[in-house]
Design a protein around this nucleic acid. Structure first.
Length: 474
RNA sequence: CGGGGAGUGGCGCAGCUUGGCAGCGCGCCUGCUUUGGGAGCAGGAGGCCGCGGGUUCAAAUCCCGCCUCCCCGACCA
């Protein structure tokens, strides 16, 4: 039996991750074993994001895991931001290394060292590169998928000839790749906006983010896209000659999403019965279950699976009659399989199956002759239904407030939305306004800034013209 | 790093106070009966009781030291 999510959400989360066979803890603190079923979901996620990234003209490449320590020191804020969580290789080959090698916490430094060699002319720009990799950040408090010491991600790195070009590319990734992927494939409605100075990536001039509300009303940052300005190009000497022959520093971006998306999937859609997967990222979209032993049942199940597969639907047969029907059903539910088709002797006699939708629990008899079609339709509806359930939750649990105290109160159950002017101007040195500091002290963070109509902030916008969304966050 | 808790078959735990054959539930294996929402019976396999030392005729249990893990707070994708 699962702990109900409303009783103890963190515990429920851990149980779902374990029982759905997504992942388990590795032997070194904070590491994670991603199990085959979990990895199959990740592969579907990866494939779609990879396709979208390539549509923007980005090419994949691969850079080393180990980074010379002095690379990290080249960009002041970057080192400061990352040094507390670095894992450093000091010994190898039985000897102490002359220069320690850092296991990449992110690859800005090593990639930009290459960029500096590759870029000479405005004709080399824009340079658009992505890599799928693992990175290591020695986290103080790990949680499977949400914050692990080693995680898998995609990190894009680009160089452009102008600030404007870099900005529009960063936003294109945010909207065309991340937001649309999350809405369409993960069925998670996300808010897109800009981070405050205090929440900005170490070394960035602007950080853009997608944030979603989880089942307990807390926020999760699901992806980010950064404008790096010329911080790294100056640190690594990424220069080019423009049309007029003058030397210029490139303008850059970096952006990423990680296996954290898996955690989002669990927390945004899961329910009392376990995981619920949107059909597009479900490794198994349909389980065809033989209810009990009877003549013709196994054959009917197999032929049904074949016809579903023939339509490109990911279907499996459940013929494990040595396990009771009830147990098998519970198992498919925990694993979040969107559609189940129950097939027993009664159904064979009636020329039907019982179709059960995981999103609503709804059961309905469907004639075998209508089958591949009805399943296809249901799979489409399930994605839409899950998206609107998540959207309704975010709508119901977002409160518009007029003071910071009310915002803190609202953040105990969901999101608070208020005029960003309340955050106060950045105080010299701190990078954080007085109002924002007050929120932070109460365990609430500003998740993003938007225009009042939900659009992304423009370069000239003042804090007073924007809306802040604040919440407790993972 | 601050505050709590725990280390005992694969997983979850009891046993420790008051030393005396290492147990229970789940899972696993075999057989039979079952199977339309977490099956039943019978038989069976599986242990460096976190590590090191000490006390004792005898230590999972008492004493000393060490290690690790988990949960709650400050950081992140």
């Amino acid at each position: 039996m699962l702990t109900p999510p409303e009783d103890d959400f963190p515990r429920w989360y851990q149980e779902v991750v374990a029982k759905a066979e997504l992942a388990e803890n590795g032997p070194v603190r904070g590491t994670m074993v991603i199990r085959p079923y979990g990895y199959a979901i990740w592969e579907l996620v990866q494939a779609d994001i990879d396709r979208r990234i390539k549509e923007l003209g980005v090419q994949n490449a691969y850079f080393p895991l180990l980074v010379p320590e002095h690379y990290l020191r080249r960009e002041a804020e970057h080192v400061e931001g990352f040094s507390p969580e670095l894992a450093v290789v000091t010994h190898a080959g039985g000897r102490e290394l002359e220069e320690p090698a850092v296991i990449r916490p992110t690859s800005e430094t090593i990639i930009n060292a290459s960029f500096a060699r590759w870029i000479h002319s405005y004709r080399d720009l824009p340079l658009l590169v992505n890599q799928w990799a693992n990175v290591v950040r020695w986290e103080l408090r790990p949680r499977l998928f949400l914050r692990t010491t080693e995680f898998l991600w995609q990190e894009g790195h680009t160089a452009h000839a102008s600030e404007q070009a870099a900005r529009s590319f960063a936003l294109e990734v945010l909207e065309q790749v991340y937001v649309s992927f999350m809405r369409e494939l993960l069925a998670i409605p996300v808010l897109a906006g800009q981070k405050t100075a205090g929440e900005r990536f170490a070394g960035a001039t602007a950080t853009w983010t997608c944030e979603a509300m989880m089942g307990d009303g807390k926020a999760l940052q699901m992806g980010t896209s950064h404008e790096l300005g010329q911080n790294f190009s100056r640190a690594f000497g990424i220069t080019y000659l423009d049309q007029s022959g003058s030397e210029r520093y490139a303008w850059q971006t970096s952006w990423g999403v990680s296996t954290r998306l898996m955690g989002a999937l669990v927390m945004a859609h899961g329910d009392r019965s376990g995981l619920r997967l949107p059909p597009k990222v479900a490794p198994i979209q349909v389980a065809v279950v033989a209810v009990r032993e009877a003549p013709g049942v196994a054959e009917a199940v197999d032929s049904l699976v074949r016809s579903l597969k023939g339509r490109g639907i990911r279907a499996v047969a459940d013929l494990s009659l040595e396990t009771s029907f009830g147990r098998r059903v519970v198992n498919w539910e925990i694993k979040g399989v969107p559609v189940r088709l129950d097939l027993g002797p009664r159904d064979i006699a009636a020329g039907q199956v019982i179709m059960v939708r995981r999103d609503t629990g709804e059961k309905m008899p469907v004639a075998i002759t209508e089958l591949p079609n009805r399943v296809e339709i249901a799979l489409g509806q399930i994605g839409d239904q899950m998206r609107s359930m998540a959207a309704a939750r975010m709508r119901d649990r977002t409160e518009t407030t007029s003071s910071l105290d009310d915002a803190i109160e609202a953040a105990s159950t969901g999101f608070a939305s208020f005029e960003a002017g309340l955050l106060g101007a950045d105080e010299a040195g701190s990078g954080t306004g007085r109002g924002e500091a007050k929120l932070n002290a109460a365990g609430v963070t500003v998740r993003l800034l938007q225009q009042p109509d939900g659009a992304l902030p423009e370069p000239g916008d003042k804090l007073e013209d924007l809306i802040a969304i604040a919440a407790r966050a993972y």
